[in-house]
Nucleic acid binder design. Structure first.
Lengths: 343, 343
DNA sequence: TGTAGGTTCTTAATCGATTTACTTAATGGT
DNA sequence: ACCATTAAGTAAATCGATTAAGAACCTACA
């Protein structure tokens, strides 16, 4: 037989004068053939340069792929730039790597899961993806999915107790019952609009992270005996410096000028601090500011940011482990208040 | 016909009473059937919930995957932590995303390409992977590969003009023709040994990055009218602080004590600066030190490091573009001298 | 009317494997 | 010597698609 440029199970079997099945078994099911035969076959394959069954064909047949897709909230670009997201990814990859599973990056901007759904064992979805359609598709077509920091009512999810954490940080920030509070919210609304919200009854029932956090804030505020004005909430559509600065400036110039700013992310809090300092306010004397996330930059800033710290890498590890276990459950991860000089 | 839980091309075809091929053509080759038939089929598929041909099967048949593997120099963990590497990844992903191609992360620690080679259209390999076997495997089994910052003599590669850049930075460092120069080289030798090199004729012909840089240094040195002693070169097997410190200490204690240290990476240069300061030398008065890479830490160090800066994101974009074009060529990317106070 | 060409659709081979059901031979217990 | 097991290996269906080759029909032009 002439040697083909690249071997297949079939051509190898022909060459060795055994059946397809026997070669396949040599690689996958040692108990199905004699030890001698098996070693003979494996040795021959090595010599001929056949490196084992083609994985794509194998996967088609078996329906498993050893690949999991990490669905990002936004572009890959964004993911790599964001320190919190990066450490999450580090946690995920550490666990997967140990289990010999490959990681496929899937942008949250992408508009159909279809291009990968037939290629992967499932999805780990980090935060609500920017493209809304993806959520629906995940619900419908994903074989298996673990969501992180949000919920689609399927399989497993990993969350921090947002409401409790927000309650804690807000409680820490509030000191007197005549405090004037404003809230800089992240993605409170579905549409991508930067705005001041005058009406927020419906938020009380929402299940998104933002709504959970909002409830925590509200609870702490009312516990402190404060009444939150109807117009004290801003919605920021994405955690970017630009949007955050605008909202912060607005909030800090509003009447009555807030002396407590509850921010739903550290990036927002940092932008707010910069604006406040720029306006000549001192922190925390004139305005106390707290964030959420615990990114490094917050700890380097002067004054140091008071915030809720989550161990993102641990979160990644838990998400990956949960994925591999295929269990259906919701894991809750720890958080700590990280006290700085900003409140 | 009873509705199956998930449709396949075949079951759809049966349901609609047309052949396999016709359904396939409806999705892939509009010119092969009448417009009416096509629209009828697509509409029916939509209604029944068939989202198009299974990608895994399609890929097996076609031999293309719309996935490229990014081979990392080390673990995914490392990649995400390293700012230079992250921005490279950003560049790569931006281009691929625009072309609807997915990115698979492949750890440089992994020991066989085999687990993914059948799943991807090819590889972009960022730096020499930690696991040596991968290089051999890339040469042998990869359908298509673009290497970055190193060369395996296959397909395409992206490099900075190492020789020219090294020439420039060395020229900048050298001031008088009685300068005493030493070179801290990175991976000049194939074996992983930390050593002082007494004999380096063969280096002049080498094609590795290290050899290219070495030639640049040599040229600048001889242009300056200096004769480089045969024993003025150290080989450091990997860009780690520990090895670099040892070599730096050795070099700085050698006779005659060098007053110019040409380092092949910023990490090495930083380690050398720390050692020099520890020995009570002042920089640049007693010893001028230059690096290569342009990492952030070098810009924060006091004194600020003089080095060669490369635009990593651009490098990523070029690598991805080159990959997609399938051309066989070597792209050269820009660099700039970044002048600090260390020289 | 015969034939050449063009549409439209189908048949069947193929991509590279896994796995169930089956054949055959060998073993062992009584 | 007989029957029941077990071991070793094979044939063929299957995973879900693509595509070359060809059939059936229609048009048109000499």
């Amino acid at each position: 037989m002439t040697k083909p440029k690249s071997w297949t199970l079939k051509s190898i079997a022909q060459e060795l004068g055994v059946s397809n099945a026997t070669v396949s078994n040599a690689f996958n099911r040692p108990d199905q053939l004699s030890k001698a035969r098996r070693e003979e076959i494996l040795a021959a394959c090595k010599k001929l340069g056949y490196f084992g069954p083609n994985k794509a064909a194998q996967s088609l047949r078996r329906g498993t792929f050893n690949i999991v897709a990490l669905v990002l909230p936004d572009s890959v670009e964004y993911m790599v730039s964001d320190p919190v997201a990066s450490s999450f990814m580090r946690g995920v990859s550490a666990v997967l790597e140990k289990n010999g599973i490959n990681l496929l990056l899937f942008s949250g901007n992408n508009d159909n899961l279809n291009s990968v759904v037939d290629f992967v064992d499932g999805f780990i979805c980090y935060g609500r993806p920017r493209n809304k359609q993806l959520v629906e598709q995940l619900k419908q077509v994903a074989k298996h999915v673990v969501t992180v920091d949000f919920n689609i009512g399927r399989d497993a999810s990993v969350n921090v107790n947002n409401q409790q954490a927000s309650f804690d940080i807000a409680k820490h920030a509030l000191q007197k019952n005549d405090d004037r509070v404003a809230i800089l919210g992240l993605r409170l609304l579905d549409n991508d609009v930067l705005c001041r919200v005058y009406e927020h009854h419906e938020f009380e029932a929402g299940q998104s992270i933002a709504h959970q956090r909002l409830r925590g804030y509200h609870q702490a505020i009312s516990d402190a005996g404060i009444t939150l004005g109807e117009d004290r909430t801003w919605n920021i559509p994405e955690s970017s410096e630009r949007f955050a600065s605008i909202a912060a400036k607005e909030a800090l110039s509003s009447t009555p000028r807030p002396n407590v700013l509850l921010c739903m992310s550290d990036l927002i809090a940092l932008a707010a601090m910069r604006e406040a300092l720029k306006m000549g306010l001192s922190i925390p004397e004139d305005v106390r500011i707290v964030g959420f996330d615990g990114i490094n930059e917050g700890q380097r800033f002067v004054p140091k940011l008071t915030t809720v710290h989550q161990n993102s890498e641990e979160k990644g590890r838990i998400a990956a482990t949960l994925f591999l276990s295929k269990e259906q459950q919701t894991a809750e991860i720890d958080y700590q208040l990280q006290l700085g000089q900003s409140s």
